[in-house]
Design a protein around this nucleic acid. Structure first.
Lengths: 195, 195, 195, 195
DNA sequence: GATGAATGAGGTTTCATTCAT
DNA sequence: TATGAATGAAACCTCATTCAT
């Protein structure tokens, strides 16, 4: 157990270092040595723990997906109506733990590189499908059938767009503002005349 | 004149090759040799014309921004009302000339790498500002003041999100469908009860 | 200590290889691969230890300056008169350890390239100033004031000229002959009627 | 004849440009393009006239040797005694036409690279032999037989050393001072007690 | 004569990865 | 477990040279 513990601690240290290093240097440019330096360790150690650079990147992405999943689950439990559950998904995406520049930056890097990595694209696909299903499930009772997909795409793409833009932000992000802004968009979409 | 012509022709050839090669291999991974092969030329020639890899990438991004600008201008001229002009901006972003997988892919690559390149980030910023201004100008007469920014962000981020997703599409894109879907989203946002 | 030792050993090995390789191929033409081959290693290793080609060249020049310095110090300790100390400086420049074709050759290469490298020119300047000061100090009590600079320049430039010519020698150098020849020149200069 | 004339003019232009460019950038680093730019022409033209880079370098060295030869001949004609003829050789080496930083610089570059080029080393050897023979011829009647070689080496190496140092000079050269300094050195050597 | 255009050859440097300690 | 040491592979870029115009 102690052994297991050390492994986990080192894992986490490296993943944190990866988030920072990738954010600062870019996925395609960051080197093992830079990440190792950020972690106060050596490149050889990273390979010892993760097997390869791609292994480290996959672990880092998994780490972030885990945070998103947790944030979603936690907010889900407290939601009592379809509308609240829909908002929970939105809020989770702009959670304080998640909606930071380094993480948005990293997210964008992963997105951009997913098409060229089987392992990354698989994670990306799974995550997107989960969000999609959540949205669909809740929207079914919030808007007429003919609008479900339109609203869903509007919301899901909106979220992606916000992350993308956030990654380039010159100033620190404001998760609270992001959440209320997202809710406002959702309100507009759900209360349309067309419905 | 003949000399000048050759330069332009080669420029275009290399830019076309870059779009394809970057799409296929990824911005951070694609090599000069691969692009050169795609263009049926040599890596040395690319440096002869563009000075460096980054020079080529910047030229390629400029090329794409030019296409977007043209598409927007053309549709603008035919629009006669604020609503139509708003739709013109949307449509331009999903123009047949622009909304293809390789180009969406490239777009995403540039986005992801802009933060690490002065030249790319400048182009990115300028483009985004132009779209923003267009949206704001038209929305002023379409929704109440308090909603302008919300609707603008909803639309602009939506477009970004669509491009992002399109880049990962396993099947060929359908620009016509993308345009009508975008219009549907716009309709929802413009016709909301809240307004 | 063992680790520290390895670094030092490798350093020395590479420096030795550099002397030979530069002598054989020329400073401006010799490649990292050639030097590496001479050292029985890889070009990547050289960069690992010296950072760059220029770093290696600087280290090599430092190495030679160190030998010259040591030779001078050693002979200095045994000298008991100004005349002997003057001869010590001359002898040091033609020391058995130093006055070999590869080293003269390298010396000339460094001279020729010093003007184009901040790091090399600095070393070159420092070394020349040291020799100059030594000469001046001893000549003060050997020739009338009005001749100090003339004799000093005659000797210092003579030494440079000998090295230069030695670098092109088709046959192995004879340090003993070089030393006695230098002493003969010094004798002529010091015993002139003009004094 | 007109044709011949154009060729000669272009030749000279390129040689002048080479002297400047090599001085500024270094023999081993200067490129055909840089020399061409200095000459206001194209690299292709240089190859048209000189066949190759080495051909250009050889022509440039020949040009400088020619100047030296002329300077020597001219001063020789006016000399009426062995001593004057000896001084004529010295003076010629520090002639106003010759003793400039770019030319000393170039000279050093050629020296350093002669061992790696058959064509350059041949020129170098011939020139050095000519100076040597001149010195020997005159010294025969100026110093005892046993000292001829010592004085000759002292003078010839002194001259080389001065050129070498001059190449690195941070301030413009003073040919007049150089000539009188050289004469002073010669005086010391010729008037030694030992003789 | 003159020069853009084009490129093969080759150099330096970087880097992920392996291995011995 | 940890990391210096070492390197093959490969990328970018430069450059002398050739050739068509």
């Amino acid at each position: 157990m102690s052994r297991k513990r050390i492994r986990d601690i080192r894992h986490e240290e490296f993943v944190e270092a990866t988030i920072i290093a990738v954010h600062e240097r870019g996925y395609g440019v960051v080197t093992m040595a830079e990440i190792a330096r950020e972690a106060g360790s050596s490149a050889a150690s990273i390979n010892y723990y993760f097997g390869s650079k791609e292994g480290l990147m996959e672990a880092t992405m998994r780490h972030m997906l885990q945070i998103l999943k947790q944030a979603m689950l936690q907010r889900y439990k407290m939601a009592t109506s379809p509308r609240e559950r829909l908002m929970a998904v939105l809020d989770a995406n702009f959670d304080d733990q998640l909606f930071t520049i380094p993480q948005c930056s990293l997210w964008m890097q992963f997105w951009a590189n997913a098409p060229y990595s089987k392992r990354l694209s698989r994670l990306h696909r799974i995550n997107r499908a989960r969000v999609r299903d959540h949205f669909r499930a809740e929207l079914r009772s919030l808007v007429p059938d003919g609008q479900i997909e339109t609203v869903r795409l509007a919301l899901q793409n909106y979220m992606d767009g916000v992350w993308l833009e956030a990654a380039q932000s010159p100033v620190a992000l404001d998760p609270i503002a992001a959440r209320s802004e997202a809710r406002r968009v959702a309100d507009l979409l759900l209360n349309s005349h067309n419905s």
